[in-house]
Design a protein around this nucleic acid. Structure first.
Lengths: 98, 98
DNA sequence: TACATGTGTCAAGTAATGATTTACAGATCT
DNA sequence: AGATCTGTAAATCATTACTTGACACATGTA
């Protein structure tokens, strides 16, 4: 849990997918049917992969949405755990009555 | 992909966890440190399990946040796929240049 | 040179979401 | 009667996920 922040899916797109395809950001955004600025933020790791984005990217990359969504979820969870680090101490663990 | 909508995590809480613990909704909400209404919506499947909620519930149930988040993610993905069913047809699958 | 294309970035606006508090009516238990 | 729990609804607030429009800068190319 105190490991480093999980990799942002945008990093994979930026470092692997886009270069491999030899495609411009503008063209990729057009293919994904999202705004160029939005894709830019994803590549920049300042926007998350929403379920809808995962569906788009999964189709475009041909490997399905799950992997993209899972990476994002790992991030979101990591961040939530950091944010709630204090709060969580106040939450008891329930015990079954019987 | 055309299976039925994945089970909402709230259903597990409503049908298994809470009954097993023999605890009131109000008491559970208090333990989770969220409003009674919010928990009600979760049990009612009208509110999603956010990453932060998953952390709370995971602590309370003692089994960690992942399972709760994964169930929610399956739902979100299913819904996204339904919503984008038409849109996705317009997105090409990229082919590597080399 | 001039023009097109791509990139980085910012700002404004929109729509939805996650959550809170307050409130009220009905059920049940003591 | 009083206390607690429950189901709902409304008002509010902050944040998020997008969009479009705009501007500056670079680079390639006719």
């Amino acid at each position: 849990m105190s490991t480093r922040k999980p990799t942002h899916p945008g990093a994979i797109l930026r470092e692997d997918v886009i270069p491999e395809l030899g495609i411009s950001i503008s063209a990729a955004a057009e293919a994904l049917r999202i705004s160029r600025q939005m894709l830019h933020k994803i590549l920049n790791e300042t926007a998350p992969i929403t379920p809808e984005m995962a569906v788009r990217i999964g189709k475009f990359c041909g490997n399905g949405p799950e992997i993209w969504l899972r990476m994002q979820q790992a991030r979101d969870l990591w961040e939530a755990q950091q944010k709630l680090a204090d709060e969580i101490k106040k939450i008891p663990t329930a015990k079954a009555a019987a």
